[in-house]
Amino acid sequence: MKRRNFLGLGFTTMAVTALQTVGSASIFSEHPKAFMATTGDAALEDAYGTTSAMKDDKAKLKLPDIAENGGAVPVTVSTSLSNAKTMTLIIDGNPHPLAVTWELSEGTIPKFSTRIKMRKTGNVRLIVEDANGKLHVATKQVKVTVGGCGG
């Protein structure tokens, strides 16, 4: 019985350790305020400690010029940097501008597509954090004919 109890304890400890590892490495658990920020710059300040980002071709953002349905705007984000750490999508016209953060890992091709909600016409920014912690930005204005933050 004693041996059995000991093994059980081991598994519990392992499970707890695994959970902690997942949590501690994430931008979400370290910067929960960034996701609740009400301006894009406040979100960036909290997540990365700066709002200054280089406007170069390292960050690439693909969005339509006009979105007829603000509830589902197709977006593709990518970076030409092979060793970038994170990518963050900011929708400046939304009540909480920080829309998505991706953590990048080895083997992952840093090009992602999804669909986003936009409340109104405004800028969408893609921030790419490179291996040295420097930020790169791509900005694109999207005209929204019908807003889509309900729901």
Partner: peptide, 20 residues
């Protein structure tokens, strides 16, 4: 191979595409 932190600004029934 994919680690995403979405919010409610991602559309209903999220569509996600990536490669590794």
């Amino acid at each position: 191979v994919y680690d995403m932190y979405p919010t409610s600004a991602v559309s209903k029934n999220p569509y996600i595409k990536f490669a590794f």
